[in-house]
Design a protein around this nucleic acid. Structure first.
Lengths: 129, 129
DNA sequence: GTATTGCTTGACGTGGACGTCAAGGCAACA
DNA sequence: TGTTGCCTTGACGTCCACGTCAAGCAATAC
């Protein structure tokens, strides 16, 4: 299949696929006329990238998953390097969530102070008492 | 005081102050030699901006607070427009936190599946059972 | 033959909050 | 007078994942 069809089937754009190729994530065979050619494996690879992107992974973070699939594994997360990325991301998310929670609390407190109206507790705040 | 001293006292850089000025957030008097001149009110104004920036507010979101201070109010959040920004930010934070929590859960689930090792519950996950 | 669609590469634009350099003026001190 | 340090404006660079436009070839439809 050609780049347009692959993009459509993966729910993305041709520009994105060329960008991934420029980053070395997605390689393409070439037809005689110079057109890029892809197969079903490329689609799976692309779907792996898109899923991680949707989770907020950076492109470089998807590379171990791509390499893992290329190495013949049935899943992109069947390799230790991919699992490390998962774990690092979990730590990152925990840190970020904690940060946002504390900012949320601080803003809520300032709003309460400024209005004199005590705000209802955030659903993400732990009831510490 | 001049720009260098203001920057130091606010814990930021001269570049940042000139940038704020270019955005119309921070105005400066000029000395005869063309140097920017600031007073204590400017410092308070700048501190308001920095605090909100640290919370993750965009520069435009700090504008109502700045205007409020300029209008003579003792606090930047003494005006309705500022409170609206607080409330919008709370909603935004709640949405973002919820999103991150669901991504966190999804990644944890995938890690657990891939390792066969059930992950400990996240401190931010509600125990739904 | 021609109109339309799809493909190619290359290159500039986007957003946000600045960092970093360049070329030069102003002030104080030795 | 020279050095140092702070100030001025202007302008390009950064990060990231692309969007968008341009010029031109390839394939298909009619």
């Amino acid at each position: 299949m050609r780049i347009g069809e692959l993009a459509k089937r993966a729910g993305t754009t041709t520009r994105t696929l060329r960008y991934y190729e420029s980053r070395g994530l997605l390689r393409a065979r070439r037809a005689d006329n110079g057109y890029r050619t892809y197969d079903e494996d490329d689609l799976r690879l692309l779907q792996q990238i898109r899923t991680l992107q949707d989770f907020g992974f950076g492109l470089e973070e998807t590379r171990p998953f791509v390499d893992c699939l290329r190495a013949g594994h049935p899943a992109g997360d069947a390799c230790p390097a991919s699992l490390d990325v998962y774990r690092r991301k979990l730590d990152e998310l925990d840190g970020l969530i904690g940060q946002l929670r504390s900012v949320r609390a601080e803003v809520a407190a300032r709003l309460a102070l400024a209005t004199g109206t005590p705000e209802p507790r955030c659903q993400f705040e732990r009831t510490t008492e």
